[in-house]
Design a protein around this nucleic acid. Sequence first.
DNA 1: GTGAAAGCGCTAACAT
DNA 2: ATGTTAGCGCTTTCAC
Lengths: 344, 344
Amino acid sequence: MLRPHTSSKPVSIKDIARIANVSHSTVSRALRNSPLVHPSTAEQIRKIASESGYRASAVARSLVNRRTHTIGVVVTTIADPFNGEVVSGIEDKANHLGYSVFLANSKSEPERELRVVHSFEERRVDGIIVTSSRVGAHYADLLERMNIPVVFLNNHNPGNFAYSVSIDDGNGAREATNHLLDLGHTRIGYIGDEFGLRSNENRLSGFRGALRSRGVKEHAEAMESGDGSCAEGAAAMERILKRTPLPTAVFCYNDQTALGAMSALHARGIRIPEEISVVGFDDLPAASYASPPLTTVRQPMEQMGRRAMEILAGLLSGETAGIEGVEKFDGELIVRRSTASPKK
Amino acid sequence: MLRPHTSSKPVSIKDIARIANVSHSTVSRALRNSPLVHPSTAEQIRKIASESGYRASAVARSLVNRRTHTIGVVVTTIADPFNGEVVSGIEDKANHLGYSVFLANSKSEPERELRVVHSFEERRVDGIIVTSSRVGAHYADLLERMNIPVVFLNNHNPGNFAYSVSIDDGNGAREATNHLLDLGHTRIGYIGDEFGLRSNENRLSGFRGALRSRGVKEHAEAMESGDGSCAEGAAAMERILKRTPLPTAVFCYNDQTALGAMSALHARGIRIPEEISVVGFDDLPAASYASPPLTTVRQPMEQMGRRAMEILAGLLSGETAGIEGVEKFDGELIVRRSTASPKK
DNA sequence: GTGAAAGCGCTAACAT
DNA sequence: ATGTTAGCGCTTTCAC
């Protein structure tokens, strides 16, 4: 059985003042190392504070300062490993800068997205970071109307935002495709994310651009799309496998899609890369432990998260030197063993 | 270039009072649907509030209520997929119960762990959930001393805590081992997590118990340990592969360890499950897309997260009916294709 | 049904 | 160097 929690109120600045026989403002000053307080009294106050387990109330402080030193992070779901990496970077930087982070999952449900943003407003977060948002222009408006800075990270929306950090999708896709082309592939498929999403469009057009510049024509039988998950990646690959001729290589929107596709290939006994090469995008930790290890375009996910937080902190402090509104990171092609030249 | 953010103060209860020509207390009542306010004035007030984009300040409210409706979640790192699933469950439940969640990564660094908990104290979170903590008794004391309820989830510490939800490690390990035994394996290895961690000890003793009850003796050449990561799982497997005789099956502390082990096996050209069977623990999403799909013990991670949040909420509201202090979830053996009978 | 006043735990003038 | 006072945006007596 469980016993309900009985809480007693925390010690306050006044309690300390009483013990130290000074006014509460002196305590306030001492605790924030104001030079305006006598060293010895300051010393004594700090001693009492630490002995009594005093913890300044951030909520009271926030009320007067109008700054909570708190940010809100909206992700579709933190269970997605991509978001996990990004949030890890955000939290790390936030922690070092003295910010606490509220985390909320939107699940891409507009109704929930709204609730989440409202709660952030009520909490008076100083700023917001939104990662991988799939929701539309309506939501963007909502955020713009809030009177606090918002930084987007790899947003899928076609909307235009003032501040964002994202991967160079086009370039990454081009590099990946060129790698396949260099290996001699000519029947290359693409398994995308939902169509209409910006990042997918950009990767797709990078893919197409690479083909075009080598005079290779698109292999229409192997153009498919999923939703960025393993499950849909597998399903998409299965659809491709029903059509002929089979591609000799497939470029996937992301690693999860690629991992799903690989599992469909394995299930059919099709060897990777001997029969079909597979390339992903992201370089999730799982990519290097797949079998075979997955060739992919690395996104510096943690670093991007950290950068988003830095930009936000810049916006909040006014120190905006060296910060661009829209920052693009370069992907890096990581060649592993899921790609090889096609058999003759 | 980026323009620093210029914020104007949000509309307050007083602003609305002025416009509605009532006192701010009436506004406060109206907005919280107090029956003490005349329907028509309430109506008018709500209209003004919504038109002006009013958002009640949770920080002001918290100051008077002494409740922030906020909880703190400490994870080692949110980049770990296990924690991602758990936090997803916590956040989901918290959201429905009207709580916001602060997320912090401890990275298992005691110094950072301390900072994180202190910041939670200052933020006046109503409660704390700690997942997969690896830090020792010292930290546990710190938490116990705080005057707010703490719920642990799968803590690795040998310490004893008032409130916790965890998986039944022993039983899960026993089931997994029995599965291997049923298949006819007699040379079974174990790749653990760091020794000394409670969960590892429990899985290991479940493993040993199962062997013992069938009269199979431990295969000492294949007892190894990593740190719960793919990388160390692979390294541990490589060490095992240097010794003879090889095991015909290996049970791993968790899926990541198993996935790493599988990748080491693949790299050496050893077939799974024909030559060596592999079993994991957790059932991460990646497990079903591994090749071959991984046999593992499923932990209901999201559900455990939700339950931890429920318990915490119960502690906070005093509704403790149907809540045990220490709750154990049962794992479920999921047989996939990474296990088979050993070749004769 | 509504207003006036006090107070939550701090910070920041403004005295002294 | 320290104390007094006001106020941050709310909720909650207590009057009326």
